[in-house]
Design a binder for these strands. Structure first.
Lengths: 331, 331
DNA sequence: CGGTATATGCTGATATCGAGCATAAGCGGA
DNA sequence: TCCGCTTATGCTCGATATCAGCATATACCG
């Protein structure tokens, strides 16, 4: 895969909030060059309506490995690594972000700071095997507050919001409060599902996640922590995917070759973390001619049998670039 | 500039067309780690209605330099480098893409292949100075076919289209022809200004640009070439910027503190390379409350004096994330 | 045969988009 | 002073897309 196409090519940005987690190289003797490069993967699948991510070492790390000379390209290096660790081929792959890794900078000081290049990859779940205990985890284990498919804002309302309220109250400027409202959809602001990273960063700043350097007295929120910046990278991957399904037909990378419209919808909902309006979703999909009926029907639906569809591969070249919306309108 | 987060954080994608220019590490002894990392900048300004990019060495290279231990982060390394080469401070910065550089792989074989991390940066034009002859160039010098502000499709119609037609005719599958139509807006397909990279890649494949390994008999099209992948990186930056101005208020980084709506429009047009509908543009800008009047007017317009506006910095936090459209509707 | 569950089709209100008409307010010269 | 030119600015109208429901179809299960 080449490294980029048009508007998607790569978006990245440094920013204020991010600066806390900013890529950072430990000071050294100054003018020496940076050293090694690591490839790190956010590998996603959706199984039985649950969004899952491949993790290793008890769920605490994302699969990764060094970029080596024998790799013909960054992407093929990534593929090689993940496949060797998981015995599982990668489908769609796209670059996420590159940063100088703070955690490794010390350890690798001899070689200079480590550069990490992160990728998002989509597949379907299969058996895993490897020395590092690769396992699929529902990504909401890491970000419980991101799952709002049942409309459930209990965790947010009852636990997170009060803690954020307290954090915002530490300063008398309204800036923190506004940021909370914006990013977590409080005070009448709408919830934006793609702000996964901003929410994680805000919780990090507020000392509410295990990875925070300065933990708040309250102790960390529910949600599995990860090594180093890995949970942050995962957040970046989820955010990217949530944004991308809206205008590119990537969902199909996560589905079986044939599927019902409801299965497609459940897949989108799993990723977006919110329920969508069934009728409008169907209309959107059908009017875009993203799929075509196979002729067969699925009878195991529990109700009226559903037509089976397949993805029209042709759209990949028809609309390789132009917009293709798989809208996530509220349910 | 902390305001670009979330869905923007980083977008990248692999794709078929890009494979030709694939990031690639020269073969070596196999398991050795990759070596140095370079930072490379697409630095953009808009002056007198022209989009400009900073280039060095006679316009043939983008400013770049190695990432060193003394740099606290990748971004600050980039800032340091560009500022030392140009004596010019950087404003908004965002990461573009990371790749293993084919051209440098040989030269740097001792250290392993070079990794290049490219950035898009926005500023306003100022005096430049430096050993490497930094100069501002209108970016349409590199991509003449990308400027359609005057509706001028002469170059495309008269020169490029016939050559592409010939290239498409080399194969009897309709795939090439469809790709040309899609990417260059032929055969009734609409022109998508953000497909800068896809167009460059297609021309590269067709052997129509100077950087092509296999040049077509016709010789290269008009347009300055650059060293290595630099013109490709520039295309990536332009594409990113063209996509981004549509949903994020980044234009203002390129404007003087106060401006008329027409100046704002001209700036957007310069970037997008197409004319926009004046009244609708104003409506869009005003209804979004992106700007506020200063009270003063500019009388040098040649017609009725225009109100001066300033950017409402507040929107940076209000809509740090949510959509903000600076639409590019046809003029 | 009703009860339940899903599939699928359709409608009306609202917002947005694209294109154009019309008027306002400067300037310079006849 | 009035005319013609230029740019600024306000407003309308129709096409399209979005959002939220209502209604109907077709299964399975007892």
């Amino acid at each position: 895969m080449g490294w980029g196409k048009g508007k998607d090519v790569a978006r990245g940005e440094g920013g204020k909030a991010g600066r806390l987690h900013e890529d950072r190289a430990a000071g050294g003797d100054g003018s020496r060059q940076a050293g090694t490069a690591d490839l790190i993967a956010v590998l996603v699948a959706v199984t039985e309506g649950e969004p899952r991510v491949l993790a290793i070492r008890g769920g605490g790390s994302l699969p990764s490995g060094p970029f080596q000379l024998r790799h013909h390209s960054l992407q093929s290096g990534l593929r090689a690594w993940v496949e060797s660790q998981t015995h599982h081929p990668l489908g769609y792959v796209e670059q996420l972000y590159t940063f100088a890794d703070a955690a490794r900078a010390g350890a690798a000081a001899a070689d200079g700071p480590a550069i990490s290049i992160s990728y998002l990859a989509l597949t379907r779940e299969g058996p895993t095997a490897g020395a590092d205990e690769p396992e699929w985890h529902t990504w909401y284990e890491y970000f419980p507050w991101e799952d709002r498919r049942d409309g459930g804002v209990a965790l947010l309302d009852e636990l997170i919001a009060p803690l954020l309220e307290a954090w915002a109250g530490e300063q008398d400027t309204p800036a923190r409060r506004r940021r909370v409202a914006l990013v977590f959809g409080r005070d009448g602001m709408p919830w934006h599902e793609e702000l996964v990273l901003q929410r994680y960063e805000l919780l990090w700043e507020a000392g509410l996640v295990a990875e925070s350097r300065h933990r708040a007295g309250a102790g960390p929120l529910p949600g599995l922590a990860m090594v180093g910046d890995h949970r942050r990278i995962l957040a970046t991957g989820i955010a990217r995917l949530r944004a991308k399904i809206k205008y590119r037909p990537v969902v199909f990378e996560l589905l079986a070759p044939t599927f019902t419209l409801l299965e497609l919808q459940r897949c989108v909902e799993a990723i977006a973390g919110r329920a969508v309006h069934k009728q409008n979703f169907r209309r959107l999909i059908e009017q875009q001619e993203l799929v075509e009926p196979t002729g067969a029907v699925a009878r195991e639906t529990g109700g009226r049998p559903a037509k089976l569809f397949r993805f029209r591969r042709a759209v990949l070249e028809e609309r390789a670039v132009a917009g293709t919306r798989v809208g996530v309108t509220r349910g």
